[in-house]
Simulated scan of single mutants.
Amino acid sequence: MNGHFDLYVGIDYSGAETPESRLGGLQVYAARPGGRPEPVRPRPQGRWSRREVAQWLLATTHGGPRLLVGIDHGFSFPEEYFRRYRLDSWPAFLADFCRYWPTDQPGCAVEHVRRGTWWSSTPRPPGERTGATTALRLCERWTSSTKSVFRFDFQGSVAKSTHAGIPWLRYLREEGGDRIFFWPFDGWRPPEAKSVLAEVYPSIFRHRYPRDGRTPDEHDAYAVARWLEETDRNGMLDRYLDPPLTSPERRTAALEGWILGIA
């Protein structure tokens, strides 16, 4: 893929509270080509909700700059989950997941679904959608410190943010149409005209850059945006968009996803 993006966006996600809650842990930074990332905050509130972040991404990709967006939550689940629930594609996974974890619905928190209280006034689908806390995706087995998307309730867990964020990927996929490319589910080589959304893992990047007074959440979003911009500007992005996977591994990643920055 040749050419640069117009805007590089790092999002440090949060699965706390509800989709409407304004969260200090939900941070967005963006960088123009050749520039340093700057915070992006909604006015006048100054704090994002998950719904607002999704709406901002949708609006920004509509007739505007071409974005490269890194979001730090899991975009999918291990292949064994697909087999267990007879899901044959990522779009099928998204639709099925949102039935069981409707965490984009007004007032719905991850903990409401986990505890079963959400279903007290809403029809509950049959069965459940869970996974073992030891289950890892292939991309997670390629790293030394990532954790299972099913492992809740510990420091550094991505499970809650993943279960809160996946429905918003479906929203962006449905509402964004052809202008948003979900890497690598839509392929490994993004076309020139589309914005790209990818999963990232800020721990890979955060220690490369000084904190300069930023909070940990702010710095993670900053580090992602800065790494994306620098990697593209230095001509190294293609390497990370096309990791050295075998054909079977690529088929697995087409279901499980991949973490941009692992190659």
Rank of each mutant, 00 (worst) to 15 (best):
G3F: 10
D6L: 12
I11P: 00
E20T: 07
S21R: 13
G24S: 06
P37H: 07
V40K: 03
R41Y: 09
P42M: 07
R43H: 10
R43V: 09
P44H: 05
G46I: 02
R47P: 03
V53M: 09
Q55D: 06
L58D: 01
T61Y: 01
T61N: 03
T61H: 05
G64E: 04
G64Q: 02
P65K: 09
R66N: 06
R66V: 01
D72K: 09
E80W: 05
E80N: 05
Y81E: 10
F82G: 00
F82Y: 15
R86V: 13
L94G: 02
A95K: 14
Q105D: 08
H112S: 13
R114H: 01
S120T: 08
P126V: 10
P126E: 15
R129N: 02
R129E: 08
T130E: 13
T133L: 10
T133K: 06
R137A: 03
E140P: 01
E140R: 05
T143N: 03
K147V: 14
K147W: 05
S148Y: 03
R151P: 00
D153F: 10
Q155A: 14
Q155H: 08
G156W: 09
A159G: 02
S161L: 10
S161G: 04
G165A: 08
L169D: 02
L172N: 00
E174D: 08
G176Y: 05
D178L: 11
R179D: 03
R179W: 00
I180W: 07
G187Q: 05
W188F: 15
W188C: 09
R189F: 02
P191W: 13
E192V: 12
A193P: 00
V196C: 09
E199W: 14
F205A: 04
R208K: 14
R211S: 14
G213S: 14
D217I: 14
A223Q: 12
T231G: 01
N234L: 12
M236T: 11
Y240N: 06
D242E: 08
S247W: 14
S247A: 15
W258G: 03
